[in-house]
């Protein structure tokens, strides 16, 4: 019996007259990589925004373990252990790479607010070392004292991943983690995501790249026009005629 980490039930969302999400039900099991795929405009990003608290659903609930995430503030959702990597990298451009990673490490250790204006950074060795370690893990330690605004886009994405990983999230949400990356970088990211899978972190990935999806996912949900049309293991989804019709326009995978 597997444990359900994320439980999306009966979520609806409309924008004006447009039904973006209609009656979405989704279960994500612990330790799995769960991919959500679908053609453009299927509602993938909307669903992710509902899960992370950026958008409020019109009806339905999102549960993380026993906690109802719907209606919680983004920072509360983060503190509960649900962390998101954005599609366009959201980093702190005016800070160095090391500081970029230290800030989330402080959030993990100190919670959503801590007033320590007189504490010297010299007494935060543990956090500095941890941040250096994570940067090393992602191959960014050579430039850790540079400003993050000076990095390439691919490096910014990896930095953002480092900022999320240092928080040891229970559930990591990735919005197209390889979009705009060269094949070489894509393969590195896949490798990295496989590596952290072994740490028992649950991940939900939205992805266009079929190569990425089929080399990583344990479970795939297919969204089309705001509804889930297929749900299962990669092999089940691959053979599903409805998926081929909606998503691939009848072509074979």
């Amino acid at each position: 019996m597997t444990e359900t980490v994320l439980n999306v039930s009966n979520v609806q969302k409309t924008f004006g007259g447009l039904q973006a999400l209609s009656d979405i039900n989704l279960k994500v099991d612990k330790g799995q990589i769960h991919a959500i795929i679908g053609p453009n405009g299927a509602g993938k990003s909307t669903l992710l925004n509902v899960i992370i608290g950026r958008l409020a659903p019109d009806s339905g609930t999102v549960k993380f373990g026993d906690m109802i995430l719907t209606g919680m503030q983004p920072y509360e959702i983060n503190q509960a252990g649900v962390v998101r990597v954005f599609q366009t990298p959201e980093i702190f451009p005016e800070l160095t790479l090391l500081q970029n990673v230290m800030v989330p490490a402080f959030a993990k250790r100190d919670g959503s607010f801590k007033f320590n204006p007189f504490k010297s950074m010299a007494r935060e060795k543990a956090i500095v070392e941890e941040a250096e370690h994570v940067l090393e893990d992602l191959g960014l330690h050579n430039q850790m004292h540079n400003l993050s605004s000076s990095m390439s886009r691919g490096d910014k994405r990896r930095l953002e991943l480092a900022m999320c990983l240092i928080q040891h999230p229970k559930l990591l949400l990735l919005d197209e983690p390889t979009a705009g990356m060269a094949r070489h970088d894509t393969n590195r990211t896949i490798e990295l995501l496989q590596r952290i899978k072994e740490r028992g972190m649950t991940k939900v990935i939205i992805e266009h790249d079929m190569h990425v999806v089929f080399s990583l996912a344990d479970h795939i949900s297919v969204l089309a026009q705001g509804a889930i049309i297929a749900d299962g293991t990669p092999d089940e989804v691959r053979g599903n005629p409805k998926v081929q019709e909606a998503y691939l326009g009848g072509a074979h995978l």
Binding site: I91, F92, E94
Partner: peptide, 13 residues
């Protein structure tokens, strides 16, 4: 100052 949105999604109030 650098990115308040990221701060919120990083767990800061």
């Amino acid at each position: 100052k650098s990115n308040q949105t990221r701060m919120n999604y990083t767990g800061y109030n």
